[in-house]
Design a protein around this nucleic acid. Structure first.
Lengths: 243, 243
DNA sequence: ACAAAAGTGTTCTCAATACACCCATGG
DNA sequence: CCATGGGTGTATTGAGAACACTTTTGT
């Protein structure tokens, strides 16, 4: 064993804390999104150990031997955010030979949409810090995580136009402007307010709560909630939100 | 070692022929699609060994230690079809704990679109037979492959409406009816011919070859080819093919 | 002549767009 | 009274759907 190999082995020890009950070459990584005052944010962690030390990266973990991929992703999101009920979908799998410098790791990437007010961020023992970042102002990321984030943002654009996923980012009762801001943040465009309202209302996805906002420095907006039944019907028929 | 374990071990020997230079818990599977006389077909293999013996399944293989996932998928498709230039995209990754009965295997699934007339089907040493199947009349499939096929057909519907992938299934010069048949086969609907023509022509994706079909028992149709330059522009602007 | 597919024309409806305008509330 | 966002009205444009119709070619 030469010096370089020893160094690598030392790094790997520090890095991994890879438990025995996990698969050796497989991880899940999560893109956890939330809306915060009209901005789309993603949750990142600053790691303690190994080659990723003191750098920001996605929130991920190993997959247990007897654990489904989606279960692993769910576990990681819940552990980091405290949220138990959220939208979770597979994005894609990244497996370039050298994406992780020390050995071959394939990562299955999931993305989730959470409601900011339901979160209670906990940083695990492997991380110094866990924080929300505006997707338009991301720090430098470890490994291929920047590529992954960009791919997921593209995918979100695609998705938001064909499924009403926006509702997964809002509290139960929300205003039309809040909903509009989601589309604007994800698609990175400005929308016409009157047209947006009419369009979204015509879809019959919204139920008027017959309540108004409180304590706002302008005319109080009507609160709406999402009609899950109509959504289920729409899924079969197709849904479209092109601009 | 008890009897059952011995049996399993014997099965595994027969099953695998897992080479030393491959990852142990990872495979790629491929959905290879082509159009044949207005029908959408998918390529399947009938395996020789192990628990999949004499059953139909997707065309897959192990991923080499020093091979990217996409490279592995490309290799498998080329090996089975002889085609070297085709549309290849990742679909998703399937990794339920018991999807493969003998041990944990995660499979990264790709789909490819090939031109039937460019194919020269070769069946490898692990398969008795490789054949095209109409997606509307599939045989029983091994493991979770039916779930995978259904997911990919859903994804194709989604995809064909937002990217002009149809062209990847056609010869260089094709008629408008051939193109229409692709949309009809993938979306599983009937389209109005006059409206289809106008719509597709307005997109400026087609170049008139100023040639006609030969030897057809009806009025010869104009041949068109695909304008790749316009497509590249459209990708940025967005593309839509809703019906 | 007939089958089969190519290809054109026309009408109707409705969604998308642009933008002017009024309303309610707190500071 | 003004800033801020809520909310309505309306005219124009163009795409999509339905369908009647003519053209070309081989058998």
């Amino acid at each position: 064993m030469n010096n370089k190999t020893q160094l690598l082995a030392a790094e790997m020890d520090k890095e991994e804390q890879l438990p025995d009950d996990c698969m050796k070459n497989l991880s899940v990584d999560n893109l956890i999104y939330a809306m915060d005052q009209g901005k789309l944010k993603v949750l990142l962690a600053k790691y303690k150990h190994g080659i990723a030390a003191n750098k920001w990266g996605l929130i991920g973990h190993w997959v247990k031997l007897d654990e489904n991929l989606e279960t692993a992703a769910y576990r990681v999101v819940t552990q980091a955010t405290g949220v138990t009920n959220f939208h979770l979908d597979q994005l894609a799998t990244f497996g370039k030979v050298n994406r992780y410098p020390l050995r071959r790791i394939i990562t299955v990437v999931y993305y989730s949409l959470v409601r900011l007010e339901e979160t209670n961020i906990i940083h695990g023992e492997n991380t110094h810090e866990v924080a929300w970042f505006d997707v338009k102002a991301l720090p430098e990321l470890i490994f291929d995580h920047d590529e992954i984030v960009q791919a997921s943002l593209e995918h979100l654009k695609y998705k938001v136009r064909h499924e009403p996923i926006g509702f997964s980012l809002l509290p139960e009762k929300f205003t039309l402007l809040q909903l509009q801001e989601i589309y604007e943040a994800i698609l990175d465009i400005k929308l016409d307010k009157p047209n947006f309202r009419r369009k979204i209302q015509k879809m019959n996805l919204l139920i008027n709560c017959k309540e108004k906002q409180k304590d706002v420095a302008h005319r109080a907006a009507t609160l709406y909630r999402f009609d899950i039944n109509v959504y289920e019907k729409l899924k079969d028929f197709g849904f479209n939100f092109e601009y």
